[in-house]
Simulated scan of single mutants.
Amino acid sequence: MPSKKVLIILSDANSFPLKKTSGPDAGKVVDQPSGFFLQELAKPLQKMLDAGHEVTFASPKGQEPTADPNSESLLAYAGNFYERRRENELIRKMKKTNGFDRPRPFSTFDEDELATFAGVFIPGGHAPLADLGDDPNLGKILRFFNKENKPTAAICHGPYALLSTMKAGDGSFVYDGYKITSWSDAEENFMETLLGGEVEKVASALKDQGAVMVEGASEKFGGTTLHRELLTGGNPLAANALGDRFLKMLSV
C-alpha cells in the first residue's frame, strides 16, 4: 500500500467536567482526571505505522496529550503487562520521532494542507468532552474531510468531536442522518455510578443533533459502524477492528 498521510486528533485536556452527585462535593462540578484512552489510540496507530503511513498529531492548542489514568491500568489490559508496556513504548517513541508531545494546533491547518491528508482519526477517552466538541477550528477540519468524502474514524468518546462541525461553516451538523456508534449512555451510566457524578452523554448529544445511533451486542463487543466516509466504534474492544477497517478505507 502506498504511504499516505493521516491526521490524528487529540485533546489538550487532562480532565473533564464531572457534576458530583454524592460525597462531600455533591452538587459541584469537579475536574475528573482523564485524557486519551491508550488502547484506542495505540492499536489503530500501530496499524497505520505498520502499513507505512505517516501520522501527524493535532490538538486545539498544541499542548502535550495526557493518557487517561484508567487506560494505563493493568485492569484495562486484563492483566496483560506486556501489551500495556508495548503500547506505552509506542507513545514514548512517538514523542521522540513524531512530535506527539507537541501536536499541531488546529488553527495552523488550511485547506491546501488538509488536502494532502488521506484520512483523519479521533481516539477516545473522556478528554474530548472538555475541548473538542465546541472547537470551531476542529469543526473546519472535519467539515473539509466530510466535504471531500475522506475517511474519518472515531472511537468511544471520540465521536463527540463531530459536534464541532456546528461551530463552523453554516452551523449545521454535517453528520445529521449518519449511522454512528459511540460510547453508549448505558456505559456512561455505569461510569457515573463508579465516579459518583453526572457526565455529558456522547450518544445522546449526537442523537439530539440528528445522528442515528447504532447500539447492540455487536457494538458492545467490538463491532464498528461505517456510514459513507465515517467509521465509528463504541469502546476499546473495537480498537483493533476499527484500525483494520480504517486501513482498508485508506487503501481505496
Score class of each variant (00 low, 15 high):
residue 58 A to G: 13
residue 118 A to R: 11
residue 154 A to F: 00
residue 241 A to W: 04
residue 89 E to N: 13
residue 53 H to E: 07
residue 81 F to P: 09
residue 105 P to K: 06
residue 16 F to D: 12
residue 231 L to T: 12
residue 22 S to I: 14
residue 176 D to I: 14
residue 26 A to R: 06
residue 24 P to N: 09
residue 149 N to A: 10
residue 6 V to F: 05
residue 206 L to N: 07
residue 202 V to S: 05
residue 202 V to E: 07
residue 54 E to W: 03
residue 250 L to M: 11
residue 140 K to S: 12
residue 221 F to D: 15
residue 157 H to Y: 04
residue 45 L to E: 08
residue 215 E to F: 04
residue 115 A to N: 10
residue 202 V to C: 02
residue 85 R to G: 10
residue 120 V to W: 03
residue 232 T to C: 00
residue 116 T to L: 00
residue 75 L to W: 10
residue 214 V to P: 02
residue 175 Y to R: 05
residue 115 A to Y: 12
residue 54 E to K: 11
residue 5 K to C: 10
residue 5 K to E: 14
residue 177 G to Y: 09
residue 84 R to M: 08
residue 128 P to D: 07
residue 6 V to L: 01
residue 191 M to N: 13
residue 7 L to M: 02
residue 191 M to V: 15
residue 40 E to D: 11
residue 175 Y to A: 10
residue 250 L to N: 05
residue 123 P to A: 04
residue 121 F to W: 03
residue 36 F to W: 05
residue 127 A to F: 01
residue 208 D to S: 10
residue 28 K to W: 01
residue 190 F to G: 12
residue 57 F to P: 13
residue 93 K to W: 06
residue 86 R to M: 08
residue 62 G to N: 01
residue 134 D to L: 06
residue 83 E to F: 06
residue 23 G to F: 02
residue 93 K to H: 11
residue 105 P to V: 09
residue 169 G to N: 03
residue 135 D to N: 15
residue 52 G to L: 01
residue 14 N to Y: 05
residue 120 V to P: 06
residue 243 G to H: 03
residue 194 L to Y: 08
residue 39 Q to E: 12
residue 223 G to E: 06
residue 69 P to N: 02
residue 72 E to D: 14
residue 80 N to I: 07
residue 244 D to Q: 13
residue 165 T to F: 00
residue 103 P to I: 11
residue 68 D to H: 05
residue 159 P to N: 08
residue 42 A to F: 00
residue 193 T to V: 15
residue 189 N to I: 14
residue 163 L to F: 03
residue 136 P to A: 06
residue 144 F to Q: 03
residue 24 P to D: 08
residue 165 T to A: 04
residue 177 G to P: 08
residue 63 Q to K: 08
residue 102 R to W: 02
residue 193 T to G: 13
residue 12 D to F: 00
residue 210 G to Q: 11
residue 166 M to W: 04
residue 193 T to P: 08
residue 36 F to Y: 10
residue 245 R to N: 15
residue 190 F to L: 14
residue 18 L to D: 09
residue 221 F to M: 14
residue 235 N to H: 09
residue 102 R to E: 08
residue 160 Y to V: 12
residue 205 A to T: 15
residue 220 K to G: 12
residue 63 Q to Y: 04
residue 234 G to A: 13
